[in-house]
């Protein structure tokens, strides 16, 4: 499984970073950086929360 970011929607609000900081970090320019994209079973719940928590619906999980 992978997490995908639609950077045309993302505005760097950063909620994903607080839920899954190993995957997401907003940089000094306010842009989201995807640190890694492969999701293990243990990580799935936090990524699902990040997907649900994104106000711009910029995240999705590819099975």
């Amino acid at each position: 499984m992978k997490v995908l970011v639609d950077f045309s929607k993302c505005t760097g609000l950063g909620i994903c970073e607080s839920l899954a900081p190993d995957f997401f970090e907003v940089n000094d320019d306010g842009d989201l950086v995807l640190l890694k994209d492969d999701i293990t079973d243990d990580e799935l719940q936090s990524i699902e929360e990040a997907v649900a928590g994104c106000p711009t619906e910029a995240l999705r999980i590819q099975v």
Binding site: G12, E17, S18, P21, V26, D28
Partner: peptide
């Protein structure tokens, strides 16, 4: 934007 979520955690 690069700082705020570190504090949320």
């Amino acid at each position: 934007q690069s700082e705020i979520m570190k504090y949320r955690v």
